[in-house]
Structures are given as C-alpha cells and as structure tokens.
C-alpha cells in the first residue's frame, strides 16, 4: 500500500480516537432513548460501523493501487 494510504489510515485512527473520547462522546452521553435505543449506544454503533466501512474502503483502494499502480 502506498504512503498515501498509510497516511489515510493514520488520519482515520486520529479521527476515530477523537470521536470515541471526551468531549465528543459527551454529546451523546445522555440518559435518553431515541426511537427506543439509548442515545449513547446509537452513537457508538454509528462510529464503530463507520470505522469498519472506512477501513474497508481505504484498504480496497490501497490494494487496487498495488495491482494497477505502475
């Protein structure tokens, strides 16, 4: 994978590390149910799934760069 992709991955790490900590989590950390789901749980689920999807897309880009790169 190219340097660029590695940079993306590092940026992803920083972004999600921020998203999963104070003060960002405080936004959703409220004792309420939204459509029957705890607000905080919705937030964490969203971030988690996003991390998987973004990871998948970036790696796929990195892998296809490797094969057609030259």
């Amino acid at each position: 994978m190219s340097k660029k992709v590695v940079t993306y991955l590092t940026v992803i790490f920083v972004a999600f590390a921020l998203a999963l900590h104070y003060p960002f989590i405080a936004i959703a950390n409220k004792p309420i149910l939204v459509y029957g789901f705890p607000a905080f749980l919705i937030y964490l689920t969203f971030v988690w799934v996003l991390l998987i999807v973004v990871g998948f897309l970036v790696v796929r880009k990195g892998t296809s760069d490797d094969t057609h790169g030259y």
Partner: peptide, 29 residues
C-alpha cells in the same frame, strides 16, 4: 431491541447502565 430497552427503562438504575458517569467515567473510559 427497542422492546428490551423500553421495558428496562423501568429499572431503577437504567440511566446508569446506558451512559457513562460524567464525573469519573470519562477518565476511566
């Protein structure tokens, strides 16, 4: 899912279970 969450919102400590404690919780987290 929502059935469980709505039913258990009757439980006395429910609010504690679906959040983290704003005083100590963030540090521990």
């Amino acid at each position: 899912f929502s059935d469980i969450f709505i039913k258990s919102s009757e439980l006395p400590y429910f609010e504690r279970l679906i959040t983290i404690d704003p005083v100590d919780g963030y540090g521990d987290w």
